[in-house]
Deep mutational scan, measured.
Amino acid sequence: NQASVVANQLIPINTALTLAMMRSEVVTPVGIPAEDIPRLVSMQVNRAVPLGTTLMPDMVKGYA
């Protein structure tokens, strides 16, 4: 099963992502692949992401 990127904390809108904000977890539906975590660092979210939410490509500016 593919691990996805999950929010490790509440991430406010327009926040630049850091490693501490993300974790890898096997979830359904599948979100951004966990191997993309290094690429996500310093990218901004375009909405508030609650703790435990799977990051989807449309939630991260410049990812999709």
Results as ranks from 00 to 15, higher is better:
N1Q: 14
N1P: 07
Q2P: 13
Q2A: 14
A3P: 15
A3W: 06
S4N: 01
S4H: 02
S4P: 01
S4Y: 04
S4W: 02
S4T: 07
S4F: 03
S4V: 03
A7T: 12
N8I: 14
Q9P: 01
Q9R: 15
Q9K: 10
L10D: 15
I11R: 00
I11E: 00
I11P: 00
P12Y: 08
P12K: 08
P12T: 06
I13T: 10
I13F: 06
N14G: 09
N14I: 03
N14S: 04
N14T: 05
T15G: 08
T15W: 10
T15N: 14
A16W: 09
A16Q: 14
A16L: 12
A16R: 06
L17V: 04
L17Y: 00
L17W: 00
T18L: 12
T18H: 09
T18F: 04
T18W: 03
L19H: 12
L19E: 06
L19N: 08
L19T: 12
M21G: 03
M21N: 09
M21K: 04
M22K: 01
M22L: 13
R23M: 15
R23L: 06
R23P: 01
S24V: 10
S24T: 12
S24H: 11
S24F: 11
E25V: 05
E25H: 11
E25W: 07
E25F: 10
V26R: 07
V26E: 14
V26T: 10
V26F: 04
V26M: 12
V27I: 11
V27P: 02
T28Y: 12
P29I: 10
P29G: 06
G31C: 03
G31K: 01
G31I: 01
G31W: 02
G31A: 04
I32W: 02
P33R: 15
P33V: 06
P33H: 15
A34E: 15
A34N: 06
A34P: 10
A34S: 09
E35M: 06
E35F: 13
E35I: 15
D36M: 11
D36V: 06
D36C: 04
I37S: 04
I37V: 11
I37F: 04
I37P: 00
I37K: 07
P38M: 07
P38D: 14
R39A: 14
R39L: 15
L40V: 07
L40H: 00
V41F: 06
V41L: 15
S42M: 09
S42Q: 15
M43E: 09
Q44F: 13
Q44P: 08
V45M: 06
V45S: 06
V45D: 02
N46I: 13
R47F: 13
R47Q: 07
R47A: 13
R47T: 11
A48V: 13
A48K: 13
A48E: 14
A48D: 09
A48Y: 10
V49Q: 02
V49C: 03
P50C: 03
P50Q: 05
L51T: 13
L51G: 13
L51M: 13
L51N: 09
L51H: 15
G52T: 03
G52H: 11
G52W: 06
T53L: 06
T53V: 10
T53P: 01
T53K: 06
T54Y: 02
T54D: 00
T54H: 03
T54C: 03
T54S: 04
L55A: 01
M56K: 08
M56L: 14
M56Y: 09
P57D: 09
D58R: 06
D58T: 07
M59L: 07
M59D: 10
M59N: 05
M59R: 03
V60H: 00
V60K: 01
K61F: 15
K61L: 10
K61T: 11
K61N: 13
G62C: 03
G62N: 12
Y63N: 08
Y63V: 06
Y63P: 05
Y63H: 06
A64F: 04
